[in-house]
Write a protein that binds this DNA or RNA. Structure first.
Length: 833
DNA sequence: GTTGCCAAGTTTTTT
DNA sequence: ACTTGGCAAC
């Protein structure tokens, strides 16, 4: 994507010599093109020049993308010159895996291949170049603050400006700031452009927030994009390095890119679209000519654009052809996923969007079941209808459907609760795709704050969160004294604690408490040495020590003991899960996969990474990966359980059986989208995404009464139900059928076996949470490795490993439900065979 | 400095 | 319904 001269075609300049050098195959294997439609084949083999692939739902998009990458490599393109960008870690992980599977084991074919998310790429680039990027206050060891910390910080800033947090709600201010950042407007420009009282106040908060973030050595999600765009724009040598390296670029879900992402992609691609970069230093404003047109391939579907609220700019995809004149456009319209009735219904629905390029959805598949819609009495009834439906599909003699082939989608997370209750009661195993929720739990956030502080001792926000958790005698007053001292002497709070004796007005008691705190942290870091450069102390060990030494574990144990509450035991389980997650990270951590590692460039660099102790490097990488997880990342269809998720999280997935609940005005479309036609259209696309996930069976339900914050409210059926058309829809109305409801509520349900074990939940797919039961068997049951066991929920399985101790865990591979880690004390395992 | 209780606001979706 | 923050008692 270099534009060195208009005469020499890219192919010759870059491809030929490299082919010799690597002695790779010159003819891509035909296998890569097997079984593709003509359109798919075109998309795979179009390697040079800009390409837009309009991939309708279910049109085999992933297949095309992965084969295209493999095809490039087999054509002799060096893998390290290929950059594939996605939005979620899950998507990038899958893509990487599938490409590797296509290319086989030869490391020459995959070395340096960059498949990652926008945010992860930006994080790596920023770390690598922080020192030379001239971004004020940005240090290479920055932390990435999740929403909770952003809110805390913004709140502090608002208070410091003597504004009231009720007039200036941190949430809305933060969203204003976020919107600005997505438009690449930094605090300075925001202030310059502020005209009214509101925006000039937000400008002040924005400025204060940015300063506070940098002081804490942190950035937020939006900063990753904003700062990277800025860096690439202003630093010619950095931009050119990227430009030179990544000759072939691929962007998935292009309809979801926002302005910042668009610019980053354009800058790396090497031709920033004339209007965007005109006048910027280092970028000439020439019309991109045909030879210099970058090899950028974007894949997306405007009908699946559902992130407008996050700044996604649908015009990026609609105007791709204008940005890159001469771009090839390939439409993938044939659907390989859904039966005809589902597709027909989806098409009928999406035709109601006026701002849209129509494209035909078609399938050659015949037959299929009609789409079912059911109007229910209330949300409990609705949940029961769904549960019963799943149960009957599963139990159907001989050819029942596996739980893992069923899913429930809903507009808002709050709707999951009733479904959970129902499925749990009906003994149907389920898992909620809620990746972020795990990391937002109080106890998990505490551990992460400790870890962040360890990874970056100037992270004052993290310090503030845990310095007195559990209570260790460093309360508000002494903390504010040390904070004042710290800001006066311009050092981090933790540094100030080292010099606690110089701080005036501290009691001897709090002085010694602080000294003890410093010693504890130093103990974990080996006083900053992180056990040196060679000894690799396991990350999970560090996490374990933090959990124990900090007193967090005993704090929750004590609470669990006194309260006996389920939530406290859950917390202990989650602490354990932290150790497991760190161990998992260790296993898959490969520092050489860092996309910011440029081949050949290492010798030139003198940054921190080279001297960083391995444990510290791993810790930081771990924290980064944790900061960037999403709901969608946690969806694992191999589980033998029903999946529950939001419509947003459902994008990119498919299930034979789908239930969409809450099909009501105000829920879907959501009431907050009532303001404008374009928001309504986005809701319709959201519905469209849900419908097109279904392969065989689809049921949409609504409740006549739904309780909002405890108050039952009468609802109106969603307009989208009507828009599905009548031809392929079978409607059922059970909302007035009180007698029947009473019956089904009591008799059949009572007769049905009830299982009181909670099912996998709590955000972590791989964890089986504890169930609390007074009559839980005491530990001491013997489950040797290899023994066969039965779990009331997950059925038969085999023990893979057992740990000893108070919360002894067993790793069990279930026949139907996959591998799970169970806490023996609560898991009610029985031995069989 | 710590703990516990009551009032208030809160919910759309997520990297 | 459920968390969060402020305030009073210990």
């Amino acid at each position: 994507m270099c534009r060195e001269g208009p005469t020499a075609p890219m192919v010759e300049r870059y491809r030929m010599p490299l082919m010799d050098e690597h002695a790779l195959r010159t003819e891509p294997a035909d296998a890569l093109l097997d079984g593709l439609t003509d359109a798919q084949r075109d998309a795979v083999t179009h390697t040079e020049g800009p390409l837009l692939v309009l991939a309708a739902a279910g049109s085999g998009k992933t297949r095309v993308i992965t084969r295209r990458i493999a095809y490039l490599v087999q054509s002799g393109i060096p893998p390290w010159s290929i950059l594939a960008l996605t939005f979620t870690n899950k998507a990038s992980g899958e893509m990487r895996e599938r490409v590797h599977a296509l290319l086989g084991d030869d490391p020459r074919l995959t070395r340096g291949l960059t498949v990652t998310t926008f945010h992860a790429l930006c994080a790596r680039l920023l770390r690598r170049h922080a020192e030379v990027a001239d971004l004020p206050g940005l240090r290479p060891d920055f932390a990435i603050y999740p929403t909770a910390d952003q809110t805390a910080l913004v709140k502090r800033v608002i208070k410091e400006l003597d504004l009231s947090t009720s007039n200036w709600s941190p949430r809305s201010v933060l969203s204003a700031i976020s919107n600005a950042k997505n438009e690449l407007i930094d605090a300075e420009r925001y202030r310059a452009e502020a005209r009214d009282y509101y925006s000039s106040t937000v400008a002040k908060i924005y400025t204060g927030y940015t300063t506070a973030m940098r002081q804490a050595g942190a950035v937020d999600f939006d900063d990753l994009l904003l700062l990277t765009a800025k860096m690439l724009r202003e630093k010619d040598e950095i931009r050119e390095e990227c430009d030179r390296r990544w000759q072939y670029m691929l962007i998935d879900e292009y309809q979801d890119t926002n302005h910042a992402q668009f610019l980053i992609a354009s800058l790396i691609a090497g031709t920033g679209g004339t209007d965007l970069t005109a006048g910027l230093p280092g970028v000439d404003g020439d019309e991109p000519d045909a030879d210099a047109a970058p090899n950028v391939c974007v894949v997306g579907d405007p009908d699946q654009s559902i992130y407008g609220w996050r700044g996604a700019d649908i015009t990026n995809i609609l105007e791709f052809e204008e940005q890159y004149p001469g771009a090839r456009v390939i439409a993938l319209g044939q659907n390989f996923r859904s039966d005809a009735p589902i597709l027909a219904v989806a098409d009928s629905l999406i035709r109601n969007n006026r701002r849209r390029k129509h494209k035909d959805l078609f399938t050659t598949r015949k037959g299929g079941e009609p789409v079912l819609t059911t109007r229910c009495k209330n949300e409990q009834h609705e949940a029961q209808i769904v549960g019963d439906w799943f149960r009957s599909l599963h139990d159907e003699g001989g050819h029942g459907i596996n739980w893992k082939d069923m899913a429930v989608f809903y507009r808002t997370n709050a709707l999951s609760r009733v479904i959970e209750d129902e499925l749990r009661g009906a003994g149907i195993p389920y898992v909620i795709a809620r990746g972020t929720a795990f990391y937002e739990r109080e106890e998990v956030r505490h551990v992460l704050s400790y870890l962040r502080l360890i990874g970056n001792l100037s992270d004052d926000v993290s310090l503030g969160r845990i310095v007195n958790v559990p209570s260790r005698g460093i309360g508000k007053t002494s903390l504010s004294k040390i904070e004042t001292f710290a800001s006066r002497s311009e050092m981090p709070v933790f540094g100030a604690m080292r010099r606690v004796s110089e701080v005036e007005g501290l009691t001897a008691r709090s002085q010694s408490a602080m000294t003890k705190f410093v010693e504890m942290i130093d103990g974990w870091t080996g006083s900053g040495s992180f056990m040196g450069e060679t000894v690799s102390v396991a990350l999970s060990e560090l996490v374990q020590r933090v959990i124990q030494d900090s007193g967090l574990e005993s704090m929750y144990k004590k609470q669990a003991h006194t309260s006996g509450a389920e939530s406290d035991l859950e917390r202990l389980g989650n602490l354990d899960e932290m150790v497991t997650s760190a161990a998992q990270f260790e296993d898959q951590y490969r520092p050489e996969d860092d996309p910011a590692e440029f081949p050949g460039a290492d010798a030139m660099r003198d940054g921190a990474p080279a001297v960083m102790p391995p444990l510290l490097a791993m810790l930081r990488a771990y924290l980064e990966s944790v900061a960037l997880v999403s709901d969608a990342d946690k969806v694992d269809p191999s589980q033998g359980t029903v999946m529950l998720m939001t419509l947003h999280a459902a994008k990119g997935l498919e299930f034979p059986v789908v239930a969409m609940i809450g099909m009501e005005e105000g829920t879907l479309p959501h009431s907050r989208s009532a303001e404008s036609e374009s928001q309504l259209e986005e809701e319709r696309r959201l519905c469209f995404v849900g419908v097109t996930r279904a392969m065989k069976l689809l049921k949409l339900t609504s409740a006549k009464y739904r309780s909002v914050r405890g108050v039952p409210e009468r609802t109106i059926e969603s307009r989208f139900i009507e828009e599905l058309g009548a031809e392929h829809v079978q409607r059922t109305d059970l909302s007035d059928d009180w007698d029947d409801f009473d019956q089904t509520d009591d008799a059949p349900r009572a007769a049905r076996p009830r299982h009181d074990m909670p099912t996998g939940t709590l955000g972590q797919i791989d964890t089986t949470p504890t169930s609390l039961n007074a009559s839980a068997p005491s530990v001491g049951f013997d489950f040797p490795v290899g023994s066969l066991v039965r779990h009331p929920q997950f059925g038969p399985g085999k023990v893979l490993s057992v740990s000893r101790g108070r919360y002894a865990r067993a790793r069990v591979k279930f026949r139907d439900a996959g591998e799970k880690t169970l806490i023996l004390e609560y898991a009610r395992l029985t031995r069989i065979g």
